[in-house]
Nucleic acid binder design. Structure first.
Lengths: 216, 216
DNA sequence: TCAAAAGTGTTCCTGTTACACCCATGA
DNA sequence: TCATGGGTGTAACAGGAACACTTTTGA
């Protein structure tokens, strides 16, 4: 039986699965590694915790530095602690996830990383560490959350049409929804209200614009 | 801004919130501390991870040693990482939770602890560290899980009556349920089947005994 | 006038709720 | 025979699913 160690040799990291919906696709934010042994591979933004820093704070800091994404609503996902998840040494990862509106941030990274980019969850590149498992868990959680939480609030701009709202749901679930039922159900929830404005410009009937009335 | 540390001074622990239902009360398993600065206080079973040990494995080991509870179905709850959660040094805790049948284990602890006991969640003693917060989170998760998962399977013995099943639900939710509706709904789920046996002995009509048919 | 997307009602079905009475047993 | 908990049916309602047509606009 393993004895309680007087000194541990385990490091603690935080990783973030940040989602958005763009072009009717659910996408996740990845950075491209420069250093061996993962050069060229993609990964979720992440890094080690400071001694006086919570994982939440670490994610904030890391997102700002590595991706340019700031001050988003984050939710703890799960902690990944397989002994072999990082071949360079024992590191556990406290994973977080968040949703941000499309185009809400200008992406930029540091010289430590080769690139930062949105990737469709349906066609992810090879991911470093166990980040494929983390991303998969995050997508499952997001879909589950869609059933009971006002997830779209984090993904849409202040004004949006019902069609845009429905597209967001369809993109996350990966399946079409009935337009009338979706609108009826969503409006009955009382979460959104008409802004009084219309979106014009298309060669078709203008759409009413809505705002969120409540934040869940 | 905090810099990525070359060396971290953070320890990693695992804690377990183990529940049972006894005498129509939801109870959680606690151990009583002996050592300063928490002498006499109660805490969730827990301890530091070994270098080659996952938190899941650590919880298994710790439960066996500290409480006598073995090989239960565990689910990861959340990681608690407030900087000040342990005044003796920075320790993060990966918390797990589990449900076990009443009377399924003979409780025993080591000389390191003063006692091990089931405590009703409605009347917990003062808890060490941030274990009150962990316990509260675990109870919330358990109640939420009750809505969509076959939680009772972990709490009941192989054979049980519908009344016992209903009592389990009522104890966790802390509110009464309609007998006819509960039975109708639960039987329609197809999760349980009649064993063919009856529980006799009371000064009233014998009750049918059921088994679980599926494990969710 | 046509193409394109917006907007709207009704029916059916299923599951939930509320509610009251008879049944089998041991004492 | 009575006290006790076991066991059952039905009506009303709400929410979800399926489904087709009319409206408004720009080109």
């Amino acid at each position: 039986m393993t004895k309680h160690p007087a000194v541990q040799n385990i490091k603690v990291a935080a990783d973030a699965a940040i989602f958005t919906v763009e072009n009717k696709q659910l996408k996740v934010l990845l950075i491209q590694m420069k250093k061996a042994p993962f050069a060229g591979e993609w990964a979720l933004p992440g890094g080690l915790l400071g001694d006086e820093e919570t994982s939440r704070q670490a994610v904030d800091r890391i997102l700002t530095t590595q991706t340019g994404v700031k001050k988003v609503y984050l939710e703890q996902l799960m902690t990944f602690d397989d002994v072999q998840r990082d071949k360079l040494g024992r590191v556990i990862s406290i994973a977080w996830f968040a949703l941000i509106p499309n185009g809400g941030f200008k992406l930029k990274t540091t010289e430590k990383y080769a690139d930062v980019r949105w990737w469709p969850v349906k066609a992810l590149p090879k991911l470093a560490y166990d980040h494929a498992a983390i991303a998969k868990t995050a997508v499952s959680r997001l879909r589950a959350k869609l059933e009971y939480a006002n997830v779209a609030w984090s993904l849409l701009p202040a004004e949006f049409t019902l069609a845009e709202l429905q597209n967001t749901y369809e993109s996350i679930l990966g399946k079409p929804l009935d337009k009338r039922n979706f609108q009826k159900k969503y409006l009955a929830l009382g979460l959104i209200k008409e802004s009084g404005k219309m979106r014009t410009g298309g060669a078709y009937r203008p759409a009413k614009l809505y705002n969120f009335a409540k934040f869940v």
